[in-house]
Each structure stands twice: as structure tokens, then as C-alpha cells.
């Protein structure tokens, strides 16, 4: 059995040696989450690997957004959230009392559905993260800003107007600015919550290309409602349905020979 249907067992147990040698950045174990009485995530088990793009797909309301927000504990901003189980980030449980949320979020960046630049200049948007983490030196800040903007493939477009308000940028540019803002903190993992859902096709393509490049240096976990996107850019894909992981495997396998009927129904467009 080459692909795995996910049960309570840890997935990818019996994998090839190639898989075993990869570093696990995120390992979710028996995760359950409730909004009040609504059981939103049910017994999730998912390992995620370094320098890979992991896509999370599923119909709306399946818990994929909730799950990605749990990875950096942003989900706790919602009232009445209850969580059980554990998520190991580089072998440390992120729910451990001693693991400070702010520390986790420094290591794990996030890009949101809608671009959310601060109402500041482009420069100050990028410099925000480094500044709160104690970098005051103007020269170093300038270097970080340039490096991050280059990293997000937007440097050429904005280098002459770094001191203009970020709101003057187009939607697609704003989203790449937000990615740059995230890179400026030099994260280990980047979480992306439907980063292209508010963008036009052309900007979407640019962001997708960027994700491919970023994978060299970062591990990326991306939620998307767009299956073609998942197929194009990801290495692994997890299919969520009603708060459960139905199937998790290499993207090629998920989209060619899924082992679960429901996955097949979803990717062939029979529901969702």
C-alpha cells in the first residue's frame, strides 16, 4: 500500500527511506479542537516536512483554515476555543506552557487570505518585524528590507517608492508585500491561508511562482480552495472533510490515484 488512508495511526509510518530521512518540522498528534460545542477538528495526525510545500485542500467549512491557524496558535484569538492533543514544532509541543506564543510566531510566519499591510510606508511594513525583535540599526534594516522584498519578488516594482504608503499598491503587490513582511523575520515555516483567493489570475500566478522559489529555503504550508493550485505547487497534499483528514500523501498520488472514494469525488468535482 503506497498511499495511506489516515486513521488514528501515525501516517507515513511505513514509508520509503527517502521519507524517513527528511526532517519533520511540524508533527500533529491526535489534535482535536472545539468552538464551543462544535467539534471542528477531529483527531488530526499529520507530519509535515522541511523544504516542502504541503497543501491542505477540502470544501469550505472542512476545518482547513482552522487547522492552519492552530499551527501558530492564532486560532486562540477566537473566544471559547478548546484544544486537545499536541502539535510538535521541531519536536516541541506548541501548547506547552513554556513555549511562548510570540516565540512560535517569530519562527513561523503567516500570510492571510486578504492582504493586510499596515497603514504605513512600504519600508515600515517590512521593518515592523525586525524592529519589534530589537533591530534598530538603520543600515541593517535597509538590508533586511531589500533582501525581503527581493525574496518576495517585488523589489523591482517598489524600490523607488519605499517611503510611500503601502495602500497605494495593487492587491497582488500588497500580498507579496505581506509575504516580504513575513520573510523579514527570517521564519522557518510560512503558513499561507488561501493567499491568492483575493487576487486576480495574473497576480495569482506570480504568487505561485514565488512559493516555488521560497520552498528552497522555507517549509510552506498552504491552505487552498483551488485544487489546480494544490496540484501545481505542492509536494504533499492533505484532504480535509468535516474536520477530519481523509487522505494525506504525495500530491502526485492524491491527484492521480487517490485511495479514498471521497477524495476522488472531491478532486473530480463531484462535490465541494
Amino acid at each position: 500500500m503506497s498511499s495511506l488512508s489516515i486513521s488514528t495511526e501515525l501516517p507515513l509510518k511505513k514509508e520509503t527511506t527517502e521519507q524517513v530521512n527528511k526532517t519533520v518540522v511540524y508533527d500533529t498528534k491526535n489534535l482535536n479542537l472545539w468552538y464551543g460545542n462544535n467539534h471542528a477538528l477531529k483527531n488530526i495526525n499529520l507530519p509535515m516536512y522541511k523544504n516542502e510545500v504541503t497543501a491542505i485542500i477540502g470544501p469550505s467549512g472542512c476545518g482547513k483554515s482552522t487547522y492552519i491557524k492552530t499551527l501558530n496558535r492564532m486560532v486562540e484569538l477566537v473566544q471559547n476555543v478548546r484544544i486537545s492533543g499536541e502539535i510538535l514544532y521541531r519536536e516541541k509541543n506548541i501548547f506547552d506552557k513554556e513555549f511562548r506564543v510570540e516565540e512560535l510566531r517569530t519562527r513561523v510566519g503567516m500570510v492571510f487570505q486578504k492582504p493586510n499591510p499596515f497603514p504605513k510606508t512600504i519600508f515600515d511594513n517590512i521593518a515592523y518585524g525586525p524592529r519589534i525583535h530589537g533591530i534598530k540599526d538603520k543600515k541593517i534594516l535597509k538590508e533586511i528590507v531589500e533582501k525581503s522584498l527581493r525574496g518576495a519578488a517585488i523589489w523591482e516594482e517598489v524600490k523607488d517608492r519605499l517611503h510611500e504608503n503601502a495602500y497605494g499598491l495593487s492587491g497582488g503587490q500588497q500580498q507579496r508585500l505581506c509575504i516580504a513582511r513575513c520573510l523579514a523575520v527570517e521564519p522557518d515555516v510560512i503558513l499561507m491561508d488561501e493567499p491568492t483567493s483575493a487576487l486576480d489570475p495574473k497576480s495569482t500566478l506570480k504568487v505561485e511562482e514565488l512559493i516555488q522559489e521560497l520552498k528552497e529555503n522555507y517549509s510552506i504550508i498552504i491552505v487552498t480552495h483551488n485544487m489546480q493550485q494544490a496540484a501545481r505547487i505542492s509536494d504533499k497534499t492533505a484532504f480535509f472533510l468535516n474536520g477530519e483528514v481523509i487522505e494525506y500523501d504525495d500530491t502526485d498520488i492524491i491527484f492521480s490515484t487517490p485511495s479514498d472514494k471521497r477524495t476522488e469525488d472531491y478532486i473530480t468535482g463531484r462535490f465541494g
Partner: peptide
């Protein structure tokens, strides 16, 4: 001030105070 802006700052590892002083109040 939109919630998304606070989330953007919190996701960078900012504390609530830093979000307030550098994002919410300026906005």
C-alpha cells in the same frame, strides 16, 4: 481598525502592547 491588521502584527511575534502602540494607535 480592521482585525486583520492586528492579526498581521501578532503573526510576526508582536505582543499585544506592540500591536497596540505600533499598529492600532497609529491607524
Amino acid at each position: 481598525v480592521p482585525k486583520a491588521m492586528r492579526e498581521g502584527a501578532l503573526a510576526l511575534g508582536a505582543t499585544k502592547l506592540e500591536v497596540t502602540l505600533r499598529v492600532v494607535i497609529p491607524a
